[in-house]
Design a binder for these strands. Structure first.
Length: 164
DNA sequence: ACTAAGATTACCT
DNA sequence: GGTAATCTTAGTA
Protein backbone atom coordinates (compact mmCIF):
# COMPACT_ATOMS: atom_id res chain seq x y z
CA UNK A 1 0.00 0.00 0.00
CA UNK A 2 2.83 2.36 0.79
CA UNK A 3 3.85 3.24 -2.72
CA UNK A 4 6.93 5.37 -2.34
CA UNK A 5 6.16 8.89 -3.60
CA UNK A 6 9.60 9.36 -5.15
CA UNK A 7 9.14 6.57 -7.67
CA UNK A 8 10.99 3.64 -6.20
CA UNK A 9 10.34 -0.01 -6.93
CA UNK A 10 11.48 -2.53 -4.33
CA UNK A 11 11.67 -6.22 -5.22
CA UNK A 12 12.44 -9.08 -2.87
CA UNK A 13 14.57 -11.34 -5.04
CA UNK A 14 13.39 -14.93 -4.87
CA UNK A 15 15.04 -16.57 -7.85
CA UNK A 16 18.64 -16.29 -9.06
CA UNK A 17 21.19 -18.20 -11.09
CA UNK A 18 24.95 -18.39 -10.53
CA UNK A 19 27.47 -18.18 -13.39
CA UNK A 20 31.06 -19.01 -12.55
CA UNK A 21 33.09 -17.18 -15.16
CA UNK A 22 35.78 -19.14 -16.96
CA UNK A 23 34.85 -22.32 -15.07
CA UNK A 24 31.32 -22.28 -16.45
CA UNK A 25 30.56 -22.92 -20.15
CA UNK A 26 27.10 -21.40 -19.71
CA UNK A 27 28.52 -18.06 -18.57
CA UNK A 28 28.90 -15.02 -20.78
CA UNK A 29 32.34 -14.70 -19.14
CA UNK A 30 33.47 -18.21 -20.11
CA UNK A 31 35.72 -16.99 -22.95
CA UNK A 32 37.05 -14.03 -21.04
CA UNK A 33 36.32 -10.34 -20.86
CA UNK A 34 34.59 -8.59 -23.78
CA UNK A 35 33.01 -5.16 -24.28
CA UNK A 36 29.67 -6.61 -23.31
CA UNK A 37 30.54 -8.55 -20.17
CA UNK A 38 33.27 -6.30 -18.77
CA UNK A 39 31.32 -5.16 -15.73
CA UNK A 40 31.05 -8.75 -14.51
CA UNK A 41 34.82 -8.70 -14.05
CA UNK A 42 34.70 -5.62 -11.83
CA UNK A 43 34.45 -5.56 -8.03
CA UNK A 44 31.70 -7.64 -6.44
CA UNK A 45 28.49 -5.62 -6.27
CA UNK A 46 28.90 -4.18 -9.78
CA UNK A 47 25.77 -4.32 -11.94
CA UNK A 48 26.08 -6.23 -15.23
CA UNK A 49 23.26 -5.50 -17.69
CA UNK A 50 23.09 -7.29 -21.04
CA UNK A 51 20.70 -7.32 -23.98
CA UNK A 52 18.95 -10.67 -24.21
CA UNK A 53 17.91 -12.00 -27.62
CA UNK A 54 18.42 -8.49 -28.94
CA UNK A 55 15.24 -7.39 -27.19
CA UNK A 56 15.25 -7.47 -23.39
CA UNK A 57 17.57 -6.23 -20.67
CA UNK A 58 18.72 -8.70 -18.02
CA UNK A 59 20.42 -7.73 -14.75
CA UNK A 60 23.24 -9.47 -12.86
CA UNK A 61 25.57 -8.58 -10.04
CA UNK A 62 29.29 -9.34 -10.11
CA UNK A 63 29.73 -11.81 -7.29
CA UNK A 64 33.36 -12.91 -7.22
CA UNK A 65 36.71 -11.26 -6.58
CA UNK A 66 37.50 -8.65 -9.24
CA UNK A 67 38.75 -10.31 -12.41
CA UNK A 68 36.95 -13.64 -11.96
CA UNK A 69 33.81 -12.80 -13.96
CA UNK A 70 31.59 -14.63 -11.51
CA UNK A 71 28.04 -13.31 -11.46
CA UNK A 72 24.50 -13.77 -10.23
CA UNK A 73 21.54 -13.34 -12.59
CA UNK A 74 18.35 -11.95 -11.04
CA UNK A 75 15.51 -14.05 -12.42
CA UNK A 76 12.49 -13.32 -10.26
CA UNK A 77 11.01 -11.93 -7.07
CA UNK A 78 8.10 -10.19 -5.44
CA UNK A 79 7.34 -6.48 -5.65
CA UNK A 80 7.26 -5.27 -2.06
CA UNK A 81 6.90 -1.55 -2.82
CA UNK A 82 6.24 0.70 -5.82
CA UNK A 83 3.91 -1.77 -7.47
CA UNK A 84 1.99 0.85 -9.46
CA UNK A 85 5.23 2.15 -10.97
CA UNK A 86 6.30 -1.40 -11.80
CA UNK A 87 2.94 -1.95 -13.49
CA UNK A 88 3.37 1.22 -15.53
CA UNK A 89 6.87 0.22 -16.61
CA UNK A 90 5.68 -3.26 -17.58
CA UNK A 91 2.53 -2.07 -19.31
CA UNK A 92 0.44 -4.67 -17.50
CA UNK A 93 -0.96 -5.47 -14.07
CA UNK A 94 0.39 -8.98 -13.53
CA UNK A 95 3.51 -10.94 -14.38
CA UNK A 96 5.66 -8.04 -13.23
CA UNK A 97 8.78 -9.85 -12.01
CA UNK A 98 8.49 -13.55 -12.91
CA UNK A 99 11.36 -13.64 -15.39
CA UNK A 100 14.75 -11.95 -15.82
CA UNK A 101 13.65 -9.54 -18.55
CA UNK A 102 10.44 -8.67 -16.73
CA UNK A 103 12.16 -8.15 -13.40
CA UNK A 104 14.73 -5.86 -14.98
CA UNK A 105 12.06 -3.82 -16.75
CA UNK A 106 9.98 -3.51 -13.57
CA UNK A 107 13.02 -2.10 -11.77
CA UNK A 108 13.61 0.38 -14.58
CA UNK A 109 17.09 -0.98 -15.30
CA UNK A 110 18.43 -0.36 -18.83
CA UNK A 111 21.75 -0.70 -20.62
CA UNK A 112 23.00 2.66 -19.40
CA UNK A 113 22.89 1.32 -15.84
CA UNK A 114 25.58 -1.25 -16.66
CA UNK A 115 28.52 -0.85 -14.27
CA UNK A 116 26.55 0.75 -11.42
CA UNK A 117 27.86 -0.01 -7.92
CA UNK A 118 24.87 -1.71 -6.31
CA UNK A 119 26.44 -1.49 -2.86
CA UNK A 120 26.97 2.29 -2.88
CA UNK A 121 24.38 4.15 -0.76
CA UNK A 122 24.18 6.95 -3.33
CA UNK A 123 23.29 4.64 -6.23
CA UNK A 124 19.72 4.85 -7.47
CA UNK A 125 19.84 1.09 -8.04
CA UNK A 126 20.88 -0.78 -4.94
CA UNK A 127 21.16 -4.29 -3.55
CA UNK A 128 20.27 -4.44 0.13
CA UNK A 129 20.25 -7.29 2.64
CA UNK A 130 16.99 -8.71 3.91
CA UNK A 131 15.65 -11.72 5.77
CA UNK A 132 16.66 -14.99 4.16
CA UNK A 133 14.17 -17.52 2.82
CA UNK A 134 12.94 -20.43 4.88
CA UNK A 135 14.05 -22.88 2.24
CA UNK A 136 16.13 -22.71 -0.92
CA UNK A 137 15.54 -25.10 -3.80
CA UNK A 138 18.38 -25.74 -6.27
CA UNK A 139 17.64 -26.77 -9.86
CA UNK A 140 19.38 -26.67 -13.23
CA UNK A 141 19.53 -23.26 -14.86
CA UNK A 142 16.95 -22.14 -17.41
CA UNK A 143 17.48 -21.59 -21.11
CA UNK A 144 21.08 -22.82 -21.39
CA UNK A 145 22.53 -25.66 -23.45
CA UNK A 146 25.88 -26.08 -21.68
CA UNK A 147 26.58 -26.64 -18.01
CA UNK A 148 23.10 -28.11 -17.55
CA UNK A 149 24.44 -30.64 -15.03
CA UNK A 150 25.05 -27.88 -12.48
CA UNK A 151 22.09 -27.09 -10.19
CA UNK A 152 22.92 -23.41 -9.92
CA UNK A 153 19.42 -21.94 -10.10
CA UNK A 154 18.24 -21.09 -6.62
CA UNK A 155 14.59 -20.48 -5.75
CA UNK A 156 13.32 -19.21 -2.40
CA UNK A 157 10.53 -21.28 -0.90
CA UNK A 158 8.64 -21.67 2.34
CA UNK A 159 7.01 -24.62 4.07
CA UNK A 160 7.42 -28.16 2.86
CA UNK A 161 9.62 -29.43 0.06
CA UNK A 162 8.12 -30.12 -3.37
CA UNK A 163 8.13 -33.82 -2.48
CA UNK A 164 5.87 -33.08 0.44
C1' DA B 1 32.05 -10.50 -44.65
C1' DC B 2 28.49 -13.74 -43.46
C1' DT B 3 25.94 -16.87 -40.51
C1' DA B 4 24.30 -19.03 -36.41
C1' DA B 5 23.01 -19.14 -31.69
C1' DG B 6 21.60 -17.20 -27.64
C1' DA B 7 21.07 -16.52 -19.39
C1' DT B 8 13.52 -14.10 -23.31
C1' DT B 9 9.00 -12.34 -23.85
C1' DA B 10 4.51 -11.33 -25.95
C1' DC B 11 1.24 -12.31 -29.15
C1' DC B 12 -0.78 -15.42 -32.59
C1' DT B 13 -3.54 -19.58 -34.08
C1' DG C 1 2.35 -24.83 -29.46
C1' DG C 2 4.60 -21.61 -32.78
C1' DT C 3 6.99 -17.39 -33.95
C1' DA C 4 8.66 -12.56 -34.36
C1' DA C 5 11.56 -9.07 -32.40
C1' DT C 6 16.65 -7.89 -33.45
C1' DC C 7 21.72 -7.12 -30.35
C1' DT C 8 26.30 -9.35 -29.43
C1' DT C 9 29.72 -12.78 -29.83
C1' DA C 10 31.84 -16.71 -32.01
C1' DG C 11 32.83 -19.52 -35.80
C1' DT C 12 33.75 -19.99 -40.59
C1' DA C 13 35.59 -18.23 -45.17
Amino acid sequence: MSDTPDGTVVVRIGEVEAYKGSDDPASHAFRGRTDRNGSMFEAPGTLYVYRSYGVHWCANVAAGPAGTGWGILFRGGEVSDGKSLAQRRRGRLDGLTNGPGKLTQALGIVGDDNGTDLLAPESTIRLEPGPGPELVMATPRIGISKGTERPWRFVAATGLTPAG
